[in-house]
Amino acid sequence: MYLQITNLNKDFQTKNGTLVVLKDINMTIKEGEFICAVGASGSGKSTLLRQIAGLDKPTSGELRIDGELITGPGPDRGMVFQHYTLYPWMNVQENTEFGLKLQGVPKKVRREQASYYLSVVGLANFAKSLPKELSGGMKQRAAIARALASEPKVLLMDEPFGALDIHTKESMHEFMLDLWKRTKITIFMITHDVEEAVFLSNRIYALGARPGTVRKEITIKLPDRTHSVKRHSIFHDYRDELMELLRKHGQEAVAVAA
């Protein structure tokens, strides 16, 4: 599987005229990769993900998955949203099954599939709980299980851990790396947290703001993926380079906005 984004542009028509949000985006994501896109708030990260998910159409350019043009949303792309989007009246089990139910999977099969992915994300004991009874980290894990249950080709994540405290976030990072190793799923994650991106991904696209463009593509090679690597100088070099990039292009964005 691979995801190909070519010359993507996205404008919005606003009261103050045309707002160019994404400009000349080119990206390639290959089978089994864990890719992060980092950018400041307002750099168009969510907008980019919405194009990939098929929730919105690009102004120009194209997106292809396995060579096929993306024209609308579909279960070949799972998504975890920036905000919590579990269905509040369904328990965790029903939430996880829901995608399969929508696609006509028989009850027994989908029950087993959902139970499997709930145990993968460590929520087997909370299958009967309502979303409001879960903590923030558990909600996002349930959302991940729901996205994975349809066995999508790629998992799209929009700042999934943005609202979590630092400790929960760190355990979610370990969880993501472990999940990625076990399921070999392709992941495209968006974040504004540079350390998170460096720690998790194989490759990073650094986005500048207003308009959102790819400023740099960095391949990450770390000696290992445990928390101690964050004290390693290689880790610091990657982080500092990205911080510098975002700072530079972030300031430009502020100047444009002012």
Binding site: G54, G74, P75, F81, Y87, G99, S150
Partner: peptide, 27 residues
């Protein structure tokens, strides 16, 4: 009904009728 919830339904493979009957209505 938040737009995110409807869009999540499309991404999970639902069509408009399912979004209407299985998401909007119970909500």
């Amino acid at each position: 009904v938040s737009k995110d919830l409807i869009e999540a339904t499309y991404i999970l493979g639902g069509d408009r009728k399912q979004a209407l009957l299985q998401v909007i209505f119970p909500h």
